[in-house]
Amino acid sequence: MTPIDDDAPPLDPAESLALIERERAKLGRDLAPDPRVMFWPWGIAWLVGFTFLFLRFGPDGRVYVDMPAWLPLAVLPLLMIAAGILTGIAGGRAGSRISGPSTRQGVMYGVSWSVAFTGFSILFAQFSDILSEDRAGLLWAGGMVALTGVLHMAGGAVWNDRDLFVLGAWTSLINIVGILIGPGWHSLIVAVAGGGGMIAAGLIGWLKLR
């Protein structure tokens, strides 16, 4: 701990520059929300939730695990709500340390997610009755994953974060592949490649911050 009034200049220029960089890096790290907390809940939710979906609603109507139909349909949204709450708290806590343009930016980005998901949910609900069960499932899952991918890409643009942009592009790509291959396979691809991608993003972000 430094004394109250240390007007003594103890450092040479090189040490001073090192000190400056240390303090800048330290506060930068302290202010960034932990990437593990921001990505892993979503990665796990997708990995587990879409695996449940795949096992019950497999390709061509196959049932790999004979569980009640409501179970995967409940597990996925519940896990996603839990992930949303966890990351919302973590993001909000990180945002509360700062007040100003950055906070507004974060709030606007968060609101965009809510608005996008609400809008798509209301739209998709209009088609649930008309479509077959597996087509309706593909519409919901494919639409939500597409939204997630695009919003991550937009986040990358907002914060000039290349990793976030790459995650979004990857999610969008595997989503399109899954949609084209068809219901069932889409769930498996999103579980493994989508959920896995988010877990990898959390790990890479964390390793970079350490």
Partner: peptide, 25 residues
């Protein structure tokens, strides 16, 4: 030039213009 104040200013320089940091942080 005082080391403590250099540390304070260095840390605050990470913030974007017009962003304010909470004292405890």
């Amino acid at each position: 030039h005082a080391q403590a104040r250099l540390r304070v200013v260095s840390a605050l320089s990470v913030l974007r213009d017009d962003d304010r940091l909470a004292f405890p942080q």
